[in-house]
């Protein structure tokens, strides 16, 4: 019996040592901050998978409007369907399938656009419209207060553009052409 105890002790000790070794080697490339998932707006192709692939319904991916980049256009490529003739807020003219963008008159000829994130489902239709005809001020981003930060993001596995990546939690946005903090643009 004593011999068995001794063997056990030896094995336990070596296991402990190997666990310590493992931890040591892991600490080599560790990271004190946490990671969160984010879409790289530069890579996003607005394929529409964010709507269905996220484990949450509605998706944690929403469109973000960067007003600093917006041209406040009357004819907004992100708001109106491409062939729209009468620039009114009627449902037949709106690109957004869920009525999540509001259009407010500021002064002639400028309009401000805002996103109602409760309604946004992250389809990216407006993003594609703004990219094609406007400044690209509408961009899809993961909203971290909604995202549960899965260990393996389900959208990341489905994303055809490989646009999802882990980013440090202290820099949680990946905008296109915009640094995200102030009003300055990246060159």
């Amino acid at each position: 019996m004593e011999r068995r105890e001794f063997v056990n002790k030896g094995i336990r000790l070596s296991l402990l040592l190997s666990l310590a070794g493992l931890t040591g080697s892991l600490l080599q490339n560790t990271f004190s901050d946490d990671y969160v998932w984010q879409i790289d707006a530069n890579k996003c192709t607005q394929c529409g998978r964010c709507v269905t692939s996220c484990i949450l319904t509605p998706s944690a991916v929403k469109v973000v409007h960067i007003h600093d980049m917006c041209g406040y256009c009357d004819l907004c490529g992100g708001y109106f369907k491409p062939e729209t003739k009468n620039l009114t807020t009627g449902a037949e003219n709106q690109l957004c399938p869920t009525n999540a963008i509001t259009r407010t008159y500021i002064e002639d000829p400028f309009f401000e656009y805002n996103i109602n994130e409760d309604l946004c489902i992250g389809c990216g239709k407006c993003v594609a419209g703004c990219d094609a005809f406007g400044n690209g001020s509408l961009q899809l981003q993961v909203r971290h207060e909604i995202c549960v930060n899965c260990n393996q993001c389900a959208i990341a596995t489905d994303c055809p553009a490989d646009a999802f990546k882990r980013v440090p939690a202290n820099k949680p946005n990946l905008f296109k052409g915009f640094s995200g903090e102030g009003a300055d643009f990246k060159t």
Partner: peptide, 29 residues
């Protein structure tokens, strides 16, 4: 599937061809 609403798309297309059809406009809304 709100993203690919075929019915509404078709109606909007019809409206584009006939922009003065108010009834159709109301129907879409």
């Amino acid at each position: 599937d709100p993203v690919n609403a075929k019915l509404i798309e078709n109606l909007v297309q019809r409206l584009n061809e006939d922009p003065n059809n108010e009834a159709l406009r109301e129907e879409i809304r």
